[in-house]
Design a protein around this nucleic acid. Structure first.
Length: 833
DNA sequence: CTAGGGTTAG
């Protein structure tokens, strides 16, 4: 067991590394301890300063180079004590040492502070100062400080210094302003390999790997010789692009260029192979250099974890230990993630033990991943404890905490902490946003997104998946269209998830055309994507096309899952495709070895029922391997109603009353089938269902979007808007409908067990209120779109048909089951829903 | 003096 190996880490066979490590040019020399330096200082100062200025300078410089917090502070104190006059020759030298030292050990704020302080004193910096302070700005997103430094560079006439220019490119690229980095690059009269490499690296880092690669070839064409650093950047860009061919091509340049292989370079190659899915080749390269580099093992491990191959982590870890390599904190990050992935809590705890024994608990990222690990294992208290004990809590710590709390059903606390957090970033906002969607608080989610806008927080594709989902659930087409435009104008990358979310959103808003337009442009499609498209067709009642898509999916080698089957079966049922539905249902077990769940039986009962095959439907219910629930019975009941079989209907109603006794009639028909969207939203779906099923009687509510505002009406609403505006309109409608003899559908009231339908307030059902409001608030040519939370009752259905005719309006009502497009007195569902 | 790998959270 790996866990045991971690604990009994005793054997250290030292095998000679077969590859060289890069020269440590960037690290500072640490030959003396702070104590020794202090003793030396005492010695010098005792002898008086005058003649010993040189050695004192060296001493302070050494302290700064030691680059530990204590040594730096000591150096700074001594510096302030002895070198307060800026005319002193070593003054600037020491200043540079301090700026560099603070940046080196991560106290970038301190570096920047010294720089700012000194520039206020009009210190004349030299050309060494700027690369140091710029690297500090790049390291810790000091974007605004960096811009000021840039201004200073120009003012002081250092603009043409190649080192400074290179540092500026690096700074802009690190800050995400690659275009600004490019501008600095373009305006250089002389460039060297570092200039090119910095820019290539910048492009590769920010998702423009293609540009990075083409820049590399441009560089070669310009006769600039690449070195090993350049190759590392380009090869890792190829990995990001999953471009194996290009990666190998670049790697082959090594010989040509006479570049020596070092661990970092080999690592980049291994990483590239792993990312391109060629684990064998990666291992081959990797095995050729085993023994020396921890980083190589870390690369392999992290790739396995990220590719969902956490099981591979244990053997690799064993191998690593056999080589005498000791897991460091980066190793542990992958191993902890693997424990989470494997859902192996004991292993996770073992990792925690290892972390404690090796003094890694002070490391932020390790603590953060431990919070994550405990939270994902459902150990909320343990996760909170790690957080509480952390000395340096970062944004990531807070984000891990709130995400963990949300995962463990404490959304309230998560939101409270979010408000009180000392610092937030995009991930924090996205976390809360996703939680709001998960909790079905769609309007709050949209509001949250608006706050993000007002604070100038740049959204990414993760943000938009949540926003898009919220729009879909709200069924707000205008908002949906706006959101789609927003994605386009802001150049937000549409990955598989976002595209799928868009298809689903448009489908839910009744704009199947747009849904399919998005779907058609997708380059990559997984089951969820296909399922969303099938669902778009199902919701429209276009069974033919849905089945067609389903088969197309299979032809393309994508295996249908449970959700895909529910969707396509729903489509068959809505489209009246009995035979095809039955054969697809059969293929579930026969070809795909998926045992049908109760929802699938519900679909087939519905399918048979609609076609009037009531006895077949009843047979299926009786032979189902599980006990039929009220949803199955409701489907059957609806069929009985449509086919006017009162006897069986009464029987079904009795079974519903018996089956659960709670959500009767509320959760009509296949709402949970409709609800089961692609996997990416399944959590939200489940919540939505739980809310619907957990409450005894959900009041009917309908919403309508008018002039950018979503208005919600509930059954029997008494709000001012209703009494002042909507009711008079309703009366007018009723008056006009009397001419075409609309009689309330009492028969359906008798048959259906829905409490609401028995309501005396039948005339004030929420969809009627919304419909009346729609007639008032929208102009004549525009369709009225209404979203209803429950299944539409038959009285409202015929009411809507008549209104569409009387007022010559398109009316689109989405209930929790499907869409109804009313026009000229006819509904798209052919009264069959 | 400037550029490079493996690094946690949504």
């Amino acid at each position: 067991m790996a866990a045991t190996l971690l604990t009994t880490l005793t054997t250290h066979h030292n095998i000679k590394p077969t590859i060289k490590h890069p020269p440590e040019t960037n690290s500072l020399k640490l030959h003396k301890t702070l104590k020794e330096l202090k003793q030396h200082q005492a010695h010098i100062t005792k002898q008086g300063l005058n003649k010993k200025t040189h050695s004192l300078t060296q001493l302070i410089a050494s302290c700064a180079e030691l680059a530990t917090p204590e040594s730096l502070n000591h150096a700074r104190k001594a510096f302030k004590l002895y070198y307060n006059k800026k005319e002193n020759a070593p003054y600037l030298y020491l200043l540079n040492c301090l700026i560099r030292g603070y940046a080196f050990c991560g106290f970038c704020d301190e570096s920047i502070k010294i720089f700012v302080e000194m520039s206020k004193k009009n210190v004349k910096f030299d050309h060494y100062t700027f690369p140091f302070v710029l690297s500090a700005c790049a390291k810790k997103d000091g974007f605004f400080e960096g811009i000021q430094v840039h201004g200073c560079v120009v003012k002081m006439g250092f603009e043409n210094d190649v080192y400074i220019r290179n540092s500026l490119i690096h700074f802009y690229c690190e800050s995400g302003e690659v275009e600004k980095g490019r501008k600095v690059f373009d305006e250089m009269s002389q460039r060297n390999v570092v200039s090119w490499t910095s820019l290539i690296c910048g492009f590769a880092r920010w998702g423009c790997a293609e540009e990075a690669v083409s820049l590399f070839f441009e560089m070669v064409e310009n006769g600039v010789r690449a070195n090993e650093v350049t190759l590392v950047c380009v090869i890792s860009a190829c990995g990001k692009l999953r471009d194996l061919e290009m990666g190998e091509r670049v790697w082959r340049c090594i010989g040509e260029l006479g570049v020596e292989e070092n661990a970092v370079l080999v690592n980049a190659v291994v990483d590239m192979y792993m990312k391109c899915g060629d684990a064998d080749k990666a291992r081959e390269v990797f095995r050729g250099c085993v023994g020396g580099d921890l980083g190589l093992y870390n690369t392999i491990l992290s790739n396995y974890v990220h590719q969902g191959l956490a099981r591979e982590v244990v053997p690799v870890l064993n191998d690593m230990l056999r080589q005498g390599l000791k897991p460091d904190r980066i190793t542990m990050l992958s191993v902890i993630s693997a424990a989470v992935e494997l859902e192996n809590y004991l292993y996770g705890k073992e990792c925690h033990g290892y972390v404690l024994r090796n003094g890694f608990e002070g490391c932020d990222s390790i603590s953060n991943s431990l919070i994550n690990m405990y939270m994902k294992c459902g150990k909320k208290v343990a996760g909170c404890m790690i957080f509480d004990r952390m000395v340096n809590k970062t944004v990531v710590s807070y984000n891990s905490l709130i995400a963990g709390l949300i995962r463990n059903d404490d959304v309230e606390l998560a939101r409270k902490i979010f408000i009180e957090m000392p610092e937030t970033n995009l991930v924090s906002w996205n976390t809360i946003l996703a939680a709001l969607v998960q909790e079905s608080l769609f309007e709050e989610a949209i509001e949250h997104f608006r706050v993000m806008q007002s604070k100038g927080i740049k959204s990414d594709e993760v943000t938009m998946v949540s926003v898009v989902s919220a729009c879909g659930y709200l069924g707000a087409l205008a908002l949906a269209k706006w959101t789609y435009k927003y994605i386009e104008t802001n150049n937000i990358f549409c990955d598989l998830r976002l595209n799928t979310a868009l298809v689903d959103m448009f489908a839910r808003c009744g704009d199947t055309q747009s849904a399919m337009l998005v779907f058609d442009t997708m380059k990559e499609r997984d089951v969820s994507a296909w399922t969303a498209a099938i669902g778009a067709m199902a919701v429209e009642g276009n069974g033919e096309r849905a089945v067609q898509l389903f088969h197309e999916m299979i032809m393309q080698g994508v295996k249908p899952d449970e959700v895909a089957f529910t969707r396509v079966l729903t489509a068959c049922s809505h489209g009246g495709l009995v035979d095809r539905g039955l054969s697809i249902f059969q293929s579930m077990t026969e070809n795909y070895k998926i045992s049908p769940q109760i929802v699938h039986y519900g679909c087939v009962v519905d399918l048979l029922g609609r076609a009037g095959l009531l006895s077949k439907a009843l047979d299926l219910i009786k032979t189902m391997p599980m006990a039929p629930n009220d949803i199955v019975w409701s489907a059957f009941l609806a069929a009985c109603r449509t086919h006017k079989n009162e006897k069986l209907a009464t029987y079904a109603a009795g079974m519903i009353a018996k089956s659960t006794g709670e959500n009767t009639g509320v959760h009509v028909l296949l709402s949970n089938i409709y609800a089961s969207a692609g996997k990416w939203t399944d959590v939200a779906e489940v919540r939505l269902n739980m809310k619907a099923t957990g409450i005894k009687k959900v009041p009917g509510s309908s919403s309508i979007e008018a002039n950018g505002v979503i208005h919600e009406f509930t059954s029997g609403d008494q709000s001012h808007l209703v009494t002042d505006l909507v009711l008079p309109m309703l009366e007018e409608i009723n008056y006009r409908l009397r001419d075409v003899a609309h009689v309330p559908d009492l028969k359906s009231v008798l048959l259906d067990v829905d409490e609401q339908e028995k309501d005396i307030l039948l005339g004030r059902h929420s969809e009627k209120l919304a419909l009346a409001f729609g007639l008032i608030s929208t102009s004549h040519g525009t369709p009225i779109r209404i979203i209803k939370n429950l299944r539409m009752c038959s009285d409202c259905h015929s009411y809507a048909k008549l209104v569409s005719k009387m007022y010559n309006r398109k009316i689109i009502i989405r209930d929790n089951n499907r869409f109804h497009f009313f026009q000229h007195g006819i509904c798209s569902c052919n009264d069959y829903w």
